[in-house]
Nucleic acid binder design. Sequence first.
DNA 1: TCTAATTAGGATATTAATATGATAATGTCA
DNA 2: TGACATTATCATATTAATATCCTAATTAGA
Lengths: 137, 137
Amino acid sequence: MLSNTAEYALRAVLYVAQHEGLGLVRVNEAADALDIPKNYLSKVFHELARGGVLESSRGQHGGFRLARPAGKISLLNIVSRFDQISERRRCLLGKDRCSDHTACLVHERWKDVSEQVATFFRVTTVADLMDGVSSAA
Amino acid sequence: MLSNTAEYALRAVLYVAQHEGLGLVRVNEAADALDIPKNYLSKVFHELARGGVLESSRGQHGGFRLARPAGKISLLNIVSRFDQISERRRCLLGKDRCSDHTACLVHERWKDVSEQVATFFRVTTVADLMDGVSSAA
DNA sequence: TCTAATTAGGATATTAATATGATAATGTCA
DNA sequence: TGACATTATCATATTAATATCCTAATTAGA
């Protein structure tokens, strides 16, 4: 359902969120803790920074922090930098959109299901993922 | 959500289903109609035959037909030869299972959503996909 | 028996995802 | 200023997905 890369990103942002207030998170530290290849995670962090999810600072004592509160970062904000979670309804059979006159009940059901997936990523936030925090669920 | 290959397989089986009773479907014919590379589709068909979804016969006038009625072929039967639609609940963050004591409400919601996806593929049949046929939806 | 049409399947090419390695740029602090 | 720790970035390697090419096996029919 999610690419490796997107899963890395989710776990990494969660890790950063859990270290808010404890200083910046360094790539090496997070890579060790999460068992993700360092150089690869470095690129994931960079991409998340470019996407406005994280903020980076360079130099000694540099690292990453959340760019905004965990409750304001949806899982879609994270995942969409790497995977496409199609918000736009997409036909099960690969066409961009079903022409309405051939649409059958299956297409409707598929639309329902895939919209639920999209909604999950859109409304769930990093804060929701954190242990003990079970708001807005 | 689905790989290219699995999407090809769905479209191809639907095509074969729509030609039931009209003689065997040849790979070249289906590839042209569906705009899928011939040799690639050839392997997809072959794999579906090995998986008991299609039956093949070789030689002149050979081709493919459904191995059983369209209503007895679930989309999961088709797709699972190529993609893994995880029936087993899988943690959003990549672990095989969430340990229960760290499971939060988000995990529950994700389980709900992903089980709906799995159920869709399991209960929807090729017959449901065919135009005009709108049973069991 | 021969030819043609077809599936079966091996070999290889291309492309995208994942991963690694090396270097440059930046900021901190002695 | 200079050493060092860090992010930024470029270059390359590896692996998996997608695609193409070619030949073998099988069957129908002339």
